[in-house]
Design a protein around this nucleic acid. Structure first.
Lengths: 348, 348
DNA sequence: TTTCGCAGTGTTATCGATAACAAAACCAAG
DNA sequence: CTTGGTTTTGTTATCGATAACACTGCGAAA
């Protein structure tokens, strides 16, 4: 671990430090009054506040929250961990959180776990060192140590995007398995019989696994023959890999009628690969995805998918946290089910 | 501004607070020794360190960095502002930053400006309150107040993704105008003559404006007739809007041979709209984008674009900052040119 | 006029760690 | 057995704000 940064001496040399006390002297009040002027709820006369704020502008003073949080014991941080920020589903969730936090004075600490619970554990530790007032996680699988740290931290925790068997506190999510099941039933209702599934290989992506098992279970329940499943690549699987996977699928089971993919990205890759090979979608083969990414409503043909309200998950998770914080930070255990819906489009 | 969170009394009621001093007592050493044990460079005997770390595990102690940064005057924060995290170009940059920061003990504070310099100013202020040790910005346009705050903060600032006329400190970027110019020349070399351009309407997206002016300038220089430019939608323009824009383009100038788009997303939307209308790409019309998003190498036909090394911009910006921090935080003014290249594909 | 209450402001102690310096323990060489 | 140097550990002051409480002055009610 390499450390970098200022040493104290270098830093103080830089600039006469400007503290609240300096501002106070300049205005002729006490530091406490300046501190109050920065907070809306505090009792400072309008006239004094104005004089203080004028001095703040003139001197270019910027409040130091690190110092403030030590004495107030409130850091104003919320930690959120997502598997990846390059995936638009999760960046939509992150955006939902950020939007919900706007004007609350809370600052988001965002981290990404790369779909690894070990990395998650490491991030949880480094985030907890910043003393966040609440934590938002993706998924319900964590290392035992991560779980212990979270429980001991005494702050509300929200798990999102899934319905964990044994939640820590709050949950904001939906059943990935049931969502996929719904899609299968819907397509079976349209007459499709020979179902294929494309997803990643490992268990790293728990949401992916849940979707897969929802698929397999439902195909069985509907008595549609043995499920045809291709595992290809380490999650999250790319567009490219979706394309490669559908090739394997068609080699192995050429008469497959409809292919469901773990996400729209792989569905799109599969769709484009079909085009490239001159296959017509949905006439020769139908394709569906999961997540309702922008691409699915834009490409041609438009892709059938599940819309899972990624943005709403973020907003609701943050709202749940804000709520808990206002009630004194007591960690409750409500489960908020988020909505999802099948979006039937031209690809099926 | 609504404030939420614990009051002190609620918080202390929750749990006997666990401080470094508690751990120290438990081990029979001073708090200072515990503090040292947490830092790799400090001189603590291996045996003592082990005893301390055992106690830390047993008690479940988590270091409090808010307190630490107050006394050490080093927060370990790096602030980074990007226009949007839902755009994969910028999330690649964010990822580059995060990766470069890994194992440095630094924590990223990420914010997004929504392409607004007013929002940027607001974010800069709230970030500076956290006393970051360095700042990474996207672009070179800032409000005067934002600029003043940054200059006064006395920490290194890196502007990325562009080449500002009047940089604050460091720059890590490339000329969007020249990159677009290169693309025009490259395509003119392939024989295209009637060039169109699709971009957003306002000046909010400075990189977009620079690309547009690079386009116009080059079309003129090559004597290819008046540039055909469609402005559609508020930046960042979506896939959808790219589709709508190309319709306008073809209504107004039906004989356009090649259309360059401000980003791959609008290019993709345009491409799909052409498919939908039964036009062949590139036979009937050629299309190119900017940014080399995953989609462009996957879709059919694959889209010609500019690869601008988004990830590398992030890594290099962070590296530049780390470097400055190690040299005592002196703000220099080096300009790091990042590479870009034309990627010719099937769409042109 | 006195009393009470409240808005506005000041004083003091403290949050939990770390810098800087001091001291002790240890070790090798003379 | 010293001495001097190095390693390891302890002591004290402090980082910059805020909580808690104290105080002042003023106006309304008695």
């Amino acid at each position: 671990m390499k450390k970098v940064g200022f040493t104290r001496s270098e830093n103080t040399r830089r600039d006469a430090k400007l503290t609240m006390t300096e501002v106070a002297k300049h205005v002729g009040v006490s530091a406490m009054t300046v501190s109050r002027a920065f907070r809306q709820d505090a009792s400072v006369s309008e006239e004094t506040r104005k004089r203080i704020m004028d001095a703040v502008d003139e001197l270019g003073y910027v409040l130091d929250q690190s110092a403030g949080s030590l004495s107030s014991r409130r850091t104003g941080f919320i930690a959120a961990l997502v598997p990846s920020i390059n995936n638009s589903n999760f960046s939509d969730t992150a955006r939902g959180i950020t939007d919900a936090l706007e004007n609350t004075g809370l600052q988001l600490l965002l981290g990404y776990t790369d779909y690894s619970i070990e990395k998650e554990e490491q991030l949880i530790e480094s985030m907890l060192r910043r003393r966040p007032e609440g934590v938002i996680l993706t998924g319900g699988s964590h290392t035992p140590r991560a779980r212990r740290m979270l429980e001991k931290a005494g702050i509300p925790v929200v798990e999102t995007w899934e319905l964990p068997e044994n939640p820590i506190n709050y949950v904001v999510g939906f059943s990935n398995s049931e969502a996929m099941s719904l899609l299968v039933r819907e397509l079976a209702g349209k007459g499709y019989r020979k179902f294929g599934y494309i997803g990643g290989t490992t268990a790293r992506d728990t949401r992916g696994s849940q979707r897969r098992s929802g698929f397999a279970k439902t195909v069985e329940e509907l008595d549609l023959g043995p499920p045809r499943m291709i595992s290809f690549g380490v999650p999250p699987i790319s567009m490219q890999q979706g394309g490669q996977a559908i090739v394997s699928m068609l080699e192995r089971w050429p008469d497959t009628e409809v292919v469901l993919c773990v996400s729209d990205l792989s569905a799109f890759g599969a769709l484009m690969e079909c085009h490239r090979r001159g296959m017509r979608v949905p006439e020769d083969i139908a394709i569906a995805g999961f997540g309702d990414y922008e691409i699915s409503s834009t490409c041609h043909p438009r892709i059938t998918t599940i819309n899972a309200d990624c943005y709403g998950i973020g907003r609701q998770a943050a709202a749940r946290l804000l709520d808990a914080l206002q009630n004194g930070g007591e960690a409750g255990d409500e489960i908020t089910l988020t909505s999802y819906k099948v979006v039937l489009r031209e690809s099926t």
